Simulated scan of single mutants.
Amino acid sequence: MAISTKGMRRITVNERVYLWRVFEIYDQGWFDGVQVTVAAMDQTLFLRYGLHQPDDSRTAVVARGRGAPTIRTACPTFQGEALVLTPQAVRDLIEWGLTVAL
């Protein structure tokens, strides 16, 4: 099944195209508040990261492929001091997600 591209931005990392968007949601997902979701166009990687997480318990959600197990794992900070998520921060998130051992 294809991924809907409506409202998504594109970024290319290691010659693979990813779609991403920032949105705000409460009581309906992994994180409350502002978060980013990333999906590889070929559906080999899915990521979700919440921006307003405490430093001592910061996590991201990672899945390697459609139907693959989803894990929540500790991660570094991917946004700046002003809690702004730039395309470079999304690139860093993707590169980190590709290194996570599942």
Rank of each mutant, 00 (worst) to 15 (best):
P76K: 03
T37Q: 02
F78M: 05
G33R: 00
P69R: 15
R66W: 14
V61P: 07
V61W: 07
W20H: 08
D42V: 05
T37V: 06
Q79T: 15
V61M: 12
R21A: 15
Q53I: 03
Y49V: 01
T73Q: 14
R66Y: 14
A63D: 14
V62F: 11
V62D: 13
Q53L: 07
L47S: 04
A74I: 06
A60W: 06
E24T: 14
P76E: 04
R16H: 09
D32A: 07
P54A: 15
D32N: 12
A74W: 13
G29E: 04
R72W: 10
Q53G: 01
A82K: 10
A63Y: 09
F23T: 06
R58K: 12
T70N: 15
V38W: 11
P69A: 12
W30F: 02
F31C: 00
G50D: 01
E24C: 07
P54S: 15
L47Q: 11
E24M: 09
V62Q: 13
R72M: 15
G80M: 01
V22S: 03
L19M: 07
L19P: 08
S57N: 12
M41T: 02
G80R: 02
A82I: 05
L45W: 05
I25Y: 05
T44Q: 04
T73E: 15
A63F: 13
R16V: 13
L45R: 05
G33F: 04
E81T: 10
V36G: 01
D32H: 02
L45A: 03
I71K: 04
W30A: 04
V17H: 09
A60T: 07
F78N: 10
T73K: 08
F46T: 04
T59L: 08
Q28G: 11
F23K: 10
V17A: 05
G65P: 13
F78W: 11
Y18T: 04
A74F: 15
G80V: 06
I71V: 14
R72G: 06
D55Q: 08
A63E: 14
A63H: 10
T44H: 01
E81V: 08
V62A: 09
V17L: 13
T73F: 12
R64P: 08
T44E: 02
W20T: 07
P69Q: 15
Q43G: 05
L19W: 10
L19I: 11
C75G: 05
L47F: 07
Q53A: 09
V61T: 07
F78E: 08
T44A: 01
T37N: 01
G33I: 00
V17R: 11
T37P: 00
V62E: 12
L47I: 11
Y18N: 10
R64Q: 12
T77I: 08
Q28H: 09
D32T: 01
I71E: 09
V61Y: 08
A60H: 06
R16C: 06
Q79V: 14
S57V: 10
T59C: 08
V17I: 14
G50S: 05
I25F: 03
G67P: 02
A39V: 06
V38S: 03
G65Q: 12
E24A: 09
V38P: 00
R58T: 06
G33L: 02
E24K: 06
G33V: 01
